[in-house]
Amino acid sequence: MTAAHSHIVTLVASREAGPLTAQDVARAMAYAQGRNLVWLEDGRAAEFQAPAAPDRSALDAVMTHKAVDIFLTRPRGRRKAVLVADMDSTIVTAETLDELAACAGIKDKIAAITARAMNGELDFHEAIRERVGLLKGLPVRALEETWANIAYCPGARALVATMNAFGATTALVSGGFSFFTARVAAELGFAINRANTLLDDGTALTGEVGEPILDKTAKLASLEEFAEARGVKLTACLSVGDGANDLPMLKAAGLGIAYHAKPVVAAEVVNKVVHTDLTALLFAQGYPASAFKGVEP
């Protein structure tokens, strides 16, 4: 890669919206002055070199396929040594605290607070204490009932399995709760999981959260810790999340990707998954589909 072609443009199309065509890619390359096209998956993902980061809106406009996620990366060190992922609405489809609240019949009330907190409108510490406080007295069996209905976001299993297979450190770091992160990590293969702790008296929730609360600062500190443990710089790290408490780690990582993110997050993060799934994070690192592991049927 020469200085004249210092960026990689990766195009990943939504399967549901139809294939990514050679004509679409050709239009994108012509606009971006691209060269050295590589198809990562026929009809779905392609990448090429460009002399500069193209304007995304303009790139969208030249393509007829309107459900394509565009990733801009540097060629050096594209395959990351560390993955730090948020859990709720990133690796699993739901906000687990909201789903737990459904067992208490107050999902709408708690979900409204969650939405505001994840968009950065509320103090995270106050919001989590308020929501957990509303669950005081909820039987602990509700945790198992909630877990039984948790589903994974498309591509989650392949993302973790592939990065594990290629030697990355994989960590699940959540502002949610360890009851869920421990189970998600065990099922998907995350090497590390960290989260907050829901306190109970053996029978019911006490309405309290264990201290200290894992927040955006702790997420960033975890990213830095894992990079140091691997002996790599933050540029060798990938982070993914959707909420305001993920922003510091998304902005610090060499590749930070906002996943179907809240508006405040999407506005500040360059690389975003809007139309596709978590396998887009693998394509953005240059992995071809043929290298994917743990692909869901």
Rank of each mutant, 00 (worst) to 15 (best):
R76V: 12
I91M: 10
T279Y: 01
D98P: 06
A171D: 03
A258F: 06
W39S: 02
A182Q: 14
A280I: 02
L159V: 01
A104L: 03
V265S: 02
A161G: 05
A165V: 07
A158V: 01
A22V: 11
A58G: 13
E16F: 13
E296F: 12
A58N: 06
L223I: 05
P263Q: 08
A127W: 13
A236D: 15
P75A: 01
L59A: 00
L143F: 03
F190Y: 12
A117G: 03
G256Q: 09
T276P: 02
H275P: 01
V270K: 14
T93G: 09
E224M: 08
K262A: 03
R74E: 14
D242N: 12
H7F: 14
A104V: 02
R230G: 07
D42K: 13
G167F: 05
G155C: 01
C237I: 04
V160M: 00
G210K: 03
A185K: 11
A32I: 06
K216W: 12
A289D: 01
K109W: 10
P139M: 07
R78C: 06
M29D: 02
G254N: 11
L188W: 04
A204K: 14
C237V: 03
R183V: 12
L220E: 05
K109M: 11
L97V: 10
D242W: 09
A161H: 07
A253N: 07
H275Y: 15
L122F: 14
D60P: 07
A127K: 09
F190Q: 02
R78W: 06
N245P: 03
V82F: 04
L122M: 14
T162S: 04
G254R: 12
A195T: 07
A127F: 12
A112R: 13
D24F: 08
F283S: 01
E268V: 08
T170H: 05
G155M: 01
F179Q: 05
T197G: 04
A61R: 15
L247C: 01
E95I: 06
L278P: 00
A3S: 14
V270E: 15
A253F: 03
L159N: 00
G137C: 10
L281Q: 04
I150D: 04
P54H: 00
D24G: 02
R194K: 14
T93L: 10
K251H: 09
R74G: 12
C153K: 14
V9I: 15
E130R: 14
A26S: 14
F283W: 11
L238Q: 05
A229L: 10
A104G: 07
I128R: 06
N119G: 07
T217A: 15
I70M: 09
G241D: 00
K251R: 15
L72D: 09
R44F: 08
H7D: 12
A258P: 00
L135H: 07
E99C: 03
A81H: 11
A165P: 00
F226W: 14
L281N: 03
T90A: 01
A261F: 11
A168N: 08
I113D: 01
I70P: 09
V184I: 15
V9T: 08
H7W: 15
D98W: 03
G105R: 08
A289P: 00
V68E: 04
A227M: 09
V273C: 00
A81V: 10
